[in-house]
Structures are given as C-alpha cells and as structure tokens.
Simulated assay, not measured.
Amino acid sequence: MVVPLTGPDSTQAPAGHPTEKEDKLAFSAYAQGWALTKSGTLLFDDGGAYTSDGTVVPPLYERQAAA
C-alpha cells in the first residue's frame, strides 16, 4: 500500500522528510488509528503525522482551518 505523506491536499513533504511524495507502509494498526512507514514516519487516521526527525504535521482539519 502506498500512502501520501501529509494528506491528500498536500503538494510537498514536510521539511527534512525524504523528498519522495509517497512512502510505503511498514506496519499499520488500523484499529488504533496509526501506521508506520518505511522511512519512520507515524501517520495518524486524522491526517496528522510525526516524522522520524521529530517534525509534527498537524491533523488535516487544523491545516484546512488555517488555510
């Protein structure tokens, strides 16, 4: 499975993240609402993420409210 790094409306990966637009899942816990990608990014079911370098990507609803 291939998932977008920062949500469907994003065109760029977070700063410091691999330059790839997509990353493959290494493990997922759908019942708990999170997944781990091969690059070490934690993806959450609300559209948020926590990258391996410590960058926090806010949930999708917060990014839409800020726009």
Rank of each mutant, 00 (worst) to 15 (best):
V2L: 14
V2W: 14
L5I: 15
L5D: 07
L5E: 06
T6Q: 11
P8C: 00
P8N: 03
D9G: 05
T11R: 11
Q12T: 06
A13Q: 14
A13M: 08
A13F: 08
P14L: 13
G16D: 11
G16C: 07
G16V: 08
H17F: 09
H17E: 10
T19E: 02
T19Y: 01
E20M: 04
E20A: 08
E20Q: 08
E20F: 02
K21A: 11
E22S: 11
E22L: 14
K24Q: 05
K24M: 06
L25N: 02
L25I: 14
A26G: 03
F27V: 03
F27R: 15
S28T: 12
S28H: 10
A29E: 11
Y30W: 05
A31M: 12
Q32R: 15
G33N: 10
W34T: 05
A35Y: 09
A35D: 09
A35L: 10
A35F: 10
L36E: 05
T37D: 12
T37E: 12
T37P: 07
S39W: 04
S39R: 04
S39H: 07
S39F: 00
G40A: 00
T41F: 02
T41A: 02
L42G: 01
L42N: 06
F44R: 14
D45Y: 09
D46F: 00
G47A: 07
G47W: 05
G47N: 06
G48Q: 01
A49K: 14
Y50W: 14
Y50P: 07
Y50T: 11
Y50C: 13
T51G: 07
S52H: 13
S52I: 04
D53V: 09
D53K: 12
D53N: 15
D53M: 04
T55W: 09
T55H: 13
V57R: 00
V57K: 08
P58K: 15
P59E: 05
P59M: 04
L60Y: 10
Y61L: 12
R63E: 05
Q64V: 10
A66E: 14
A67V: 06
